[in-house]
Design a protein around this nucleic acid. Structure first.
Lengths: 102, 102
DNA sequence: ACCTGTTTTGACAGATTTTGTCAAATTTAG
DNA sequence: CTAAATTTGACAAAATCTGTCAAAACAGGT
């Protein structure tokens, strides 16, 4: 069960790229990328999109990994985490179902 | 499928209380409470807890409604919203399962 | 129409969080 | 030991959050 950070670290290491190179492509300091890879910082949506492009991964896959990480982060110190996620799921289903109506 | 704001508005109106009164209990301006009820502002965790106390509702129920609202807010303009929630659910299950280990 | 109390709106401000830079320290690989 | 790569932490600018305040809009009663 890898976090987004784990994923891009593996990709970067498999391609034997230094932080510097990838960070330059993202237009940020390598310190930030280092922290993102280790889960100390959350990347922005734009950075995730760029990373998908850079590593030639389906953008949607990266976005799902990133967004779900954010959700986990948001609920993780609540013991009602699971329940909240499930209720949120129902709400989203309800909302998309009634999209455009009324 | 009510949002947290809908819920407390109904409770307040059922008890025929003006915004002023409830807002005073929360120690905020009534303008904020008005916005919270209509979903224009997100209440803080502490406010949710106080509201549960005020309306004599189980704190957990309010926290679930509140947290799930926040989650919906966070994903709602992504078309991968549902998938992200589901992945987040898996991650949370995985994390709580391995709590205290390693 | 006119009061009176309630609610909503929007401009504003202070506090907090996010997002990043930079340089120094640490780690890793020869 | 050296050189490159990575990590750490102090700091700053920008963005977001949380609230106040006063004016505008609304609702009900007389």
């Amino acid at each position: 069960m890898d976090s987004f950070g784990d994923t891009i670290r593996k990709l970067r290491e498999d391609n034997e790229l230094p932080l510097r190179t990838v960070a330059a492509f993202l237009d940020i300091d390598q310190a930030i990328l280092s922290k993102i890879e280790r889960g100390q910082r959350k990347p922005t949506r734009e950075q995730v999109v760029k990373l998908a492009e850079y590593f030639k991964v389906k953008e949607t896959d990266f976005l799902v990994a990133w967004l779900s990480d954010k959700l986990v982060y948001e609920v993780e110190d609540e013991d009602i985490a699971l329940k909240a996620l499930q209720v949120a799921e129902e709400k989203v289903k309800y909302i998309t179902k009634n999209k455009g109506k009324k």
